[in-house]
Design a protein around this nucleic acid. Structure first.
Length: 301
DNA sequence: AAGGCTAGCAACCGCACCAGA
DNA sequence: CTCTGGTGCGGTTGCTAGCCT
């Protein structure tokens, strides 16, 4: 069964948009505003495109005031901080970056920031931050380059950020510890005050430990199981002042207790390049989030 | 010079959510 | 209450330019 497709995929045009198509779409929106029904739009304006494709084209490219490329250091910091906080909610992150689209932010993260901060990737990167080298090959991109390890990735990033902070490395624009230090990174004058006031509300709610449920978004939604899982071991509060790699390994061992066999080997990194990595989505289970949350809480004390 | 490889980015896919019938 | 269709969104794919050997 399954639902009917939104368009006849066999007959609609796919691939890059021609300038003429852009003009048609832009002209329509200029005259009528964004349509209430994107699905019906292509036929109305004579475009042989899927309605979803039209919407995406408008939102990511044709919309006024869109900026492409040239991310600033400030934007880098904001993206990284928000990623650690809310995970891969690109629309939420992009909403704090005027002129940026979720697609842009997502691409920027996957192609630049993630490699720069976490290491890994399809070839040895030329580390912009040499002091982070060598990276333990803990979190590698999926065979397809996606590598969405969410909580696990955020955990590693968090550990690295904290260690980097301890090392007081010159030239590194990042990023103090997690909450609440990141408040100081962003100034309300920079246009991010709305989101951060929300964050600060959460901090008040969740106490001086300086953390909030990991998957809590500005709209108040909370991911399944976060902070309330009864089926996973309780995350211990983690304090660790040793070597960064040891610390990450310790956290991974905790996660390993939550995983069945197999994925633990992936976490160790040995199978990450051979195409058998399976889905890293297992790393965003409530259990992993729980460990990460416990870690962050431990650091906040 | 040519082939291989990678980064970067645009676009597509498919699922989840939500509102209206 | 259930179903249906539109929208939003994250993940993934495919193309292209540039670099490297």
């Amino acid at each position: 069964m399954g639902r009917a497709p939104c368009c006849d995929k066999a007959s609609v045009k796919k691939g890059p948009w021609a300038a003429e198509e852009d003009d048609v779409l832009r002209a329509y929106v200029a005259d009528h505003g964004t349509p209430g029904n994107w699905i019906a739009l292509p036929r109305k304006i004579g475009l042989n495109r899927c309605g979803k494709s039209c919407r995406l084209r408008w939102l990511n490219y044709l919309r006024p005031n869109i900026r492409h490329g040239g991310f600033t250091d400030e934007e880098d910091r904001l993206i990284c901080s928000l990623y650690v906080s809310v995970g891969s909610r690109w629309s939420t992150i992009a909403a704090q970056l005027p002129g940026r689209t979720d697609n842009d932010v997502k691409n920027y993260w996957n192609t630049k920031l993630k490699r720069r901060l976490l290491g890994g990737g399809r070839r040895p990167i030329r580390y912009a931050l040499p002091h982070l080298q060598p990276q333990p090959r803990l979190l590698l991109a999926s065979p397809t380059g996606g590598g969405a390890s969410t909580a696990l990735e955020r955990m590693q990033l968090s550990v690295q950020r904290r260690h980097v902070g301890l090392q007081d490395t010159p030239g590194l624009p990042l990023y103090g510890n997690l909450w609440p230090a990141q408040q100081s990174v962003l100034s309300p004058a920079a246009g991010y005050s709305g989101f951060w006031s929300h964050i600060q509300d959460h901090q008040r709610t969740w106490g001086s430990g300086g953390t909030m449920p990991l998957s809590t978004s500005p709209t108040g939604e909370t991911a399944v199981g976060v902070g309330s899982s009864s089926s996973t071991p309780a995350a211990s509060s983690v304090t660790f002042d040793g070597d960064m790699e040891d610390e990450i390994e310790m956290l991974l061992q905790q996660i390993g207790c939550l995983e069945e066999e197999g994925s633990g080997q992936l976490i160790a990194g040995e199978a990450a390049d051979d195409g058998s990595a399976g889905s890293w989505s297992s790393c965003s289970t409530p259990g992993v989030d729980s460990v990460f949350q416990g870690y962050v809480q431990g650091q906040g004390q």
